[in-house]
Design a protein around this nucleic acid. Structure first.
Lengths: 244, 244, 244, 244
DNA sequence: AATGAATGAGATTTCATTCAT
DNA sequence: GATGAATGAAATCTCATTCAT
């Protein structure tokens, strides 16, 4: 829907005789304003509990206008997901591709970047919504897998393999390590969007920076070949080497 | 009139002991049946998207009957949480309390047990629901923190501290390590309840057992003092050294 | 649930062969107990807002038992009305028939008696319910007219006519005077059942006794022929002269 | 069904092309249309027995629209009460304030006006509903007392006191006289809304005008000082003398 | 006769969506 | 294009009534 809607809008704008100004700017900004409003609300309340009218109000338009741009709440939801996740991975792959330093440093950089650019961002809340609602929107599953899970696995997994190939890391099951790397990050992001807002008695305030550092410390040390160890032989699951 | 009525009653009473009443038995089984149905549906669809009538139907009763046992959908949900989570931690604490072996083995045992008794169980899906909807039900936040998060932190954190105290583990920030330990487990559990059902193209089938082993391998190795290292000084809450 | 009921039943069962007593007595008392409970609740909450189960509980029986005696809530309501209104008038007519004193004294006596025997009694609340619900139960209209309105009119109207005939009262439209006599009484009774329970700020506490006396004083003085007046000619249904 | 709605709609249709907003006009008319529909139904069936959807249908709108204007049935009811009762007393007090004639004539005027402007109007049926349901809506009690009972007492009571002060009336307990004055009026109004619709066999058709005149005649004659009487000393709240 | 678990029609209320202006 | 009044399907929850025990 977005593409043709937008091009139609462009035509309409061209016909718009006099003003072409404020209105113009606003009209083109509309979809993004609506997606931003929707993201914020979906992340806060979830899909079902977010009312369409609220999204419209937060975007500064009326309920009717929302439906001018997105034919249903469900389509709006999908558009939010697409918009916010699709561009995520490219950047990471780019960074990884041209990196020259040690694999440990690369992993540290990727994780730090992920956190700054995404985990610490409202968009990270989308994971919460996806995980929660994917079973109610089965078509999202494939989308999420393609857009997020597979690339993330490739990114982090690739980095692990690089380390193994260069003799920096022990050979380990790539896929599983990749998950062990990313899971605490996503979990922490989700957590902050669920509990972070209204702090709860008895739970220590979590410091994400410390958490990040600790996690990285643990995993890198877990991955790295110890000075005293002989480089292990390859086996397990084909190309992946086990530790012991 | 009275005599025969009463003798009839006596006969009835006599039979009463034998069958005790299908009705009776059903009545006693109801709460569990309802909780099971509710758990399954909440986990599948989330709280808001689950209709009360659906829960009733799955439990084989009518809408009205559900409300005979739980006064509202929200109370039903709390009952589900209580029933499925509250007894979990106690057992773990007990095991940990009397354990004699190494801290690494204890952690391995706890994680393995957690997975078998909970993570690999429908009840693990509750985490998904809680994370997704806790902001709409603030009282649940505290409830969940008290019942689940705090005890879990105590259990795993305690184990880490034990290892540090015994010189087996490097000194590290307990709370953060605890989270790094548990996050991948919960994440995996949630993931299985979101995506596990309808497998998605392009994603490798995740093998939880391997994942568990790998995660444990990574983290334990990350925690443990290296043979060549001098036993580090205790410094909790201090700056953490990165492995690299 | 009421313990006395249960223990009583237990006792009855124990004595079972011999007694035929308590149970019997209870069974015969049931309808009245149910009607009393229903009266109290209907008067307090109205017909629609009274739940059948509440009536049963107040009568010390189970919901099912209520339906053993009355086939529906509606029939129960009618039975309550019948039971509580039907015997009201007879007594008054009896008193009036044999009275020897002045008509003013007779009216005073009737009104006082009405108040003591009925107006000041829970049963007076029925008027409230009838007036409120008669349009939802059209058949009650005729019943109420026959059992209450017509006899009351006859009682008080007859007394007025007696006074007129004996030259004590001015000739006035009997029916209207009768209504003017009874209306404040019923109104006061209803009022006490509506507002009397939870006193309201700003309204003076009403003293029913004083109200009664004042009303009687006003009306009797309004009715009675003045010493200085020539005894007026009878003219029912003719135009009524205003006092001023 | 509602004539006003239909005629308005017809007018609107006629102007349709030119106008700039049937919708607008309808929107402004809505609250009154809804209140009228609600008044009619509440008076006919009572609060609990009136379904919100029925009110909407009678006002010519859908269920949802009703809730656009009033957030709950209870609020709708309060709005009906406010709209129909709150402006009533002001007018009376105004009339009374500037009146120059005798107190008897003033009372006659007030009562006549009350009847024409209110008692003989659908709004009078509200009294029925209030009395019947006030115990289920305790906050209405205070509202009704403030808006209706206290002002009415002040109006009529003030008039009685005026008569006493000017030597026209015997000194009597103001509050009680006030009630004795108003009670038959309200009672009659309620009665007409309960029984007036479907006439009942055996009860004389009540002529409200005659009833009003008779009541007024009785009470005024009861109140007024007799020519042969010495003007009594003031003694409020003291024991009241019976006429006989 | 008595019970109370079970039912399901029905009431209130919400909200995604439409459409006249 | 933009609005927001209007709609009605659907969800939660209640309660009169039934019926197996």
């Amino acid at each position: 829907m977005p593409p043709d809607v937008l091009s139609e809008a462009a035509v309409a704008d061209a016909e718009c005789l006099a003003d072409a100004g404020v209105r113009q700017r606003r009209k083109e900004a509309r979809p993004q304003e609506l997606l931003d409003a929707a993201l914020a609300l979906f992340v806060e309340k979830g899909f079902a509990a977010t009312r369409a009218e609220e999204v419209a109000k937060r975007a500064g338009v009326s309920k009717g206008t929302l439906y001018l741009y997105y034919p249903s709440k469900e389509e709006l939801f999908k558009a939010v997901v697409r918009r916010n996740l699709s561009s995520l991975i490219a950047e990471g792959l780019e960074v990884a591709g041209s990196y020259e330093g040690s694999s440990a440093d690369l992993l540290a950089l990727l994780i730090q970047t992920w956190w700054e650019r995404f985990g610490n961002t409202p968009a990270a809340g989308i994971h919460k919504v996806i995980l929660a609602e994917v079973r109610n929107f089965p078509e999202l599953a494939q989308f999420y897998a393609d857009e997020v899970m597979v690339p993330a696995d490739r990114l982090f997994g690739g980095c692990v393999e690089r380390g193994v190939a260069r003799g920096e890391f022990r050979p380990m099951p790539t896929h599983e390590v990749s998950l062990a790397l990313i899971a605490p990050l996503i979990f922490m992001a989700i957590h902050r969007h669920s509990f972070g807002c209204c702090p709860v008695h008895g739970t220590a305030e979590m410091d994400p920076e410390l958490m990040l550092k600790t996690h990285l410390d643990l995993v890198l040390r877990g991955l790295q070949v110890r000075p005293d160890e002989p480089p292990a032989k390859t086996h397990r699951k084909g190309p992946v080497k086990t530790a012991a």
